[in-house]
Computed example of a mutant assay.
Amino acid sequence: MLYFEDFSEGETFELSSQTLTRAEIIEFAEQWDPQPFHLGEDHGKDAVFDGLVASGLHTLCLGSRMMITEVMNESANMGGKGITDISFHRPVEPEETLTGRLDVTEKTATHPERGDVIFELTMTTSDGSAVLSATYVSILGRRPDA
């Protein structure tokens, strides 16, 4: 179990990778972001994108899941205060593999039993180009007194 005290400013967590298939991109878009360029190849050709691209929300959700399952669920996570500075750096195309990285940028002890940790999530493609970045403020429990 990781507590507030176990996180260090400047620390990096390398997260897993996942390939977004054409079917997954369309399925997500049908339910959550039904814009034409997320729904099929033909729709995207009339847009600023050259064909089908994943929703930025899909990329954000994927990164959030990686962060939660690989770091936050192994910590004294007490919830989140918000997500800010969300940037979609470039579109994600079908069959691209995305990898997450989580950087600890700041810590503030806010209460005797908890503190805030600010994380920067970055999602990159296999060639290392960033497709998404976002800042998360999470509440972490402090280590109980022994």
Rank of each mutant, 00 (worst) to 15 (best):
D33W: 04
E106T: 06
G82L: 09
R90E: 09
T69V: 04
G51L: 04
A47L: 09
D33P: 01
M66W: 05
V117K: 06
V137T: 15
V137P: 10
P91Q: 04
V48S: 08
G10K: 08
V117M: 05
A130I: 00
T69L: 04
I83E: 09
T19E: 12
G56A: 06
L57R: 02
E96M: 11
I86S: 09
Q18E: 10
L60T: 05
G115D: 07
H111Q: 13
G128K: 02
H58T: 02
V71A: 04
G115P: 07
D103M: 02
K81S: 11
A54W: 10
T135F: 02
K45S: 13
R22V: 02
L60A: 15
C61A: 15
R101M: 10
A47M: 15
S16K: 04
F4N: 09
G82H: 12
E70D: 01
F88Y: 15
I25A: 04
P91G: 03
R143A: 12
M67A: 15
M78R: 14
M1K: 01
R22W: 00
E24Q: 12
S129T: 11
N77R: 03
M78S: 13
L2R: 14
F88W: 15
A134Y: 01
E96T: 01
I83A: 06
T135I: 11
P34N: 12
T110D: 09
A146L: 13
I26F: 03
D85T: 08
Y3C: 10
E9A: 13
Q31A: 13
E74W: 00
H111P: 00
P91N: 03
V104K: 00
M72I: 03
F28R: 00
L2S: 08
V53D: 04
F119L: 15
R90C: 08
A109L: 05
T19R: 06
I139E: 08
T69N: 12
C61L: 09
R101T: 10
T110M: 11
G141C: 08
Q35W: 03
S126I: 01
T99M: 12
T122K: 13
A134V: 06
H58S: 07
L102Y: 07
T108W: 02
F13T: 00
I83N: 06
G63M: 03
V92H: 03
E5N: 11
H43R: 08
M78C: 10
L20H: 07
T122H: 07
G128N: 02
E5M: 09
G141P: 10
G10N: 05
E96Y: 01
S126P: 03
P144N: 09
E93S: 08
E5L: 04
S126F: 01
V53R: 13
D85S: 10
T21E: 10
D116N: 14
E96L: 11
T110I: 11
R101S: 14
H43V: 02
P91C: 05
T97F: 05
A54Q: 07
L52K: 04
L60F: 10
V92P: 00
H38Q: 06
I83L: 04
G10V: 05
E95Q: 09
A134E: 05
T105R: 14
D33H: 11
E96D: 11
V48N: 11
S126V: 00
T59D: 05
E5A: 01
S16D: 08
S133R: 12
H89M: 03
T21N: 11
A54I: 06
R22S: 09
E11Y: 02
T59G: 06
L60R: 06
N77S: 14
T21S: 15
G63I: 00
